[in-house]
């Protein structure tokens, strides 16, 4: 059983965002393995421990993002593929790169986080499934493999949908699927000896057409600061009057 896990390096969720000249300032920022991807890595390692599997993790990004592969290897993945990518590209191009990076390998199961906590697009993994022509199931909270078939539970706005799907397929993982482990000390030491393949985008031999982004970010800004709330006082009739006036004249919603 071959499993591929797609991971991304993201901002630590506790970092403060600073935008300078339309770009996010990365100075002194801690980067982590995207929390949704942790569920994907954990699930792959659980399958490996329960029934045996070869787990490959893959990421793309600037040099610093290699550290998330080391985290996944320390958690228990077997090998890693790193595609060095300096410029920002869109989900369309990213998925083209990913498919090209693993085109010589075959996988029975591909896992990835439901979305990345930074961009939040939730597109890359499912685009990969589309490119590869395999089915995908998103936001899963349960996965049972049985030979060539899998029973998947997925989160549908608080309800659970149960789906049967044939391998190979791709699934994106959601909170509730499992409890990701911490990389253990022996795991971290062993990870150093595990194979990590480094590729450049040139190695992927894609056409200009494939790597031309279809969308790009024009501007980004922080939401306006929240104003303190207003507490109305006085007789109830008077308060209703005042509320009506405020909604109409100040908030302009009526």
């Amino acid at each position: 059983m071959n499993i591929l896990v797609l991971v991304k390096q993201t901002f630590d969720t506790e970092e403060k965002l600073v935008i300078e000249n339309g770009a996010i300032n990365e100075d002194g920022v801690e980067f982590i393995l995207n929390p949704y991807d942790e569920y994907a890595v954990e699930e792959a390692i659980k399958i490996k421990e329960e029934s045996g599997a070869d787990v490959t993790v893959l990421t793309l990004g600037p040099d610093r993002s290699e550290s998330v592969l080391r985290t996944a290897l320390a958690m228990g993945a077997d090998k890693a593929v790193f595609v060095e990518l300096e410029e920002e590209v869109d989900e369309y191009t990213l998925s083209k790169y990913i498919v090209a990076a693993v085109k010589d390998q075959s996988f029975d199961l591909i896992l990835g986080g439901n979305m990345a906590v930074d961009s939040g697009s939730g597109q890359v993994a499912i685009r990969v499934a589309e490119e590869m022509g395999i089915p995908h199931v998103s936001t899963i909270t349960g996965l049972t493999l049985d030979g060539n078939k899998a029973t998947v539970e997925r989160d549908v706005e608080g309800d659970v949908e149960i789906i049967e799907v044939n391998l190979p397929f791709l699934a994106t993982t959601q909170q509730g699927l499992n409890e990701p482990r911490y990389p253990s000390l022996p795991g971290i030491m062993k990870a150093k000896k595990k194979p990590l393949e480094r590729l450049s985008v040139e190695d992927l031999e894609l056409t200009d057409m494939d790597v031309t982004v279809r969308t790009s970010v024009q501007n980004q800004y922080l939401p306006p600061k929240k104003q303190a709330g207003k507490v109305l006082e006085g007789e109830i009739n008077q308060q209703v009057q005042e509320l009506f006036q405020l909604l109409r004249n100040e908030a302009k919603v009526i």
Partner: peptide, 27 residues
Amino acid sequence: KEMGLFGLSIPEEYGGTGIGMVGKCAI
């Protein structure tokens, strides 16, 4: 124990972490 904290001083060949004193102090 699963994190490997009990094997801090023990060499890798005997199942420990096998990190030096600087590593041990960091932990």
